[in-house]
């Protein structure tokens, strides 16, 4: 037992340059994978956040907006009843022109745009929350151009750009992670072959005196697994630093504040880190095993 560990670490020390290259490549690959996983998490969070807020807005035309503080006119009430009866819809709220103006004043308190806007330029709206936020377009199609309706806007389509941006960040990191993983696999495989070559006399003697396959091969597997684990730890460390010094600043900065929810440390340590450790160890073991099977006849 002691023997195989000693041999494994001797192997890692012997080809130190290769070992370092192997660990770094593995760490980068796993780090990218971790970043991709965090992106997926963040996208889910962001979507949850937005889907609870966004709605389909049915803006009413000028005459209806001007005349109706409580949606009692036949046109408005008719639209509202029809929306409420629709199975895609989970709720309808009426916001009169005056209420819209009040909200507008709240949002832009102290800003010059307030001077330009008067109640008359804002429509009254029916805010429709969807049972299924993905099917807002169907409401848009049904109600656009109807009497009393100025226009219908699915807010979801306006946040779609944000999601597709996050989505491409995710895809790019996963893509890079795969390329790096390939490099890591080849390096691990190559290092094991090199290690087996340097140890061939030793392994030859081991076989001759009756050492089992386990004793001759496990040191190589341990070398690989240690690489995978150290790589996972470095990758997690890198992600923690990246979060503290880059992401936290970016997401709390003026541009993206309140647009994307911050990445939590617990996400990183409790969800991403374990995945990286397992993936690192499993991939390194499989690579090591395959290399021994294919290239190292001992």
């Amino acid at each position: 037992m002691l023997f195989v560990w000693r041999e494994a670490f001797a192997g890692l020390r012997r080809n130190l340059t290769m070992s370092i290259a192997m660990v770094i490549t593995t760490a980068i690959s796993l780090g990218l994978l971790g970043a991709g996983l965090l992106a997926v998490r963040t996208i889910d969070r962001t979507e949850d956040l937005y889907y609870s807020l966004i709605a389909v807005q049915v803006a009413l035309d000028e005459p209806t907006s001007a005349a109706d503080p409580d949606c009692s006119s036949p046109v408005c009430a008719g639209l509202r009843d029809e929306l409420e009866a629709n199975p895609l819809v989970s709720g309808v709220e009426y916001e009169s022109r005056d209420a819209a103006f009040e909200r507008f004043q709240r949002i832009y308190a102290g800003q010059s745009i307030l001077q330009l806007v008067r109640p008359q330029s804002l429509p009254a709206t029916l805010r429709v929350t969807m049972a299924d936020p993905l099917r807002g377009t169907e409401i848009v199609e049904q109600f656009t151009g109807r009497p009393g309706v100025r226009n219908v806007v699915d807010q979801r389509s306006t946040v779609q750009d944000l999601f597709s941006f996050l989505g491409s960040v995710r895809n790019a990191t996963f893509g890079l992670a795969v390329v790096q993983a390939l490099a890591a696999l080849l390096l691990i495989s190559n290092t094991i072959q090199l290690s087996a070559f340097t140890r061939r006399t030793e392994v030859g003697i081991m076989r001759l005196v009756g050492a089992t396959r386990w004793y001759t091969q496990v040191p190589f597997l341990i070398e690989a697994v240690v690489t995978g684990l150290v790589g996972a730890v470095l990758a997690t460390g890198g992600l923690v630093l990246g979060k503290i010094f880059f992401l936290d600043r970016l997401l709390s900065g003026r541009l993206l504040a309140n647009t994307i929810p911050p990445v939590g440390m617990s996400d990183l340590l409790l969800y991403v880190a374990p995945v990286l450790v397992v993936v690192g160890a499993v991939i390194a073991t499989l690579t090591g095993y395959a290399t021994l099977r294919l290239y190292v006849r001992t």
Partner: peptide, 21 residues
């Protein structure tokens, strides 16, 4: 002979026992 050049005499002999556990 096939001795391991980086091990002492005693280590070379011990090696045969170590590797069979």
């Amino acid at each position: 002979f096939r001795l391991l050049p980086n091990k002492t005499v005693a280590e070379n002999v011990a090696f045969a026992l170590e590797v069979i556990g």
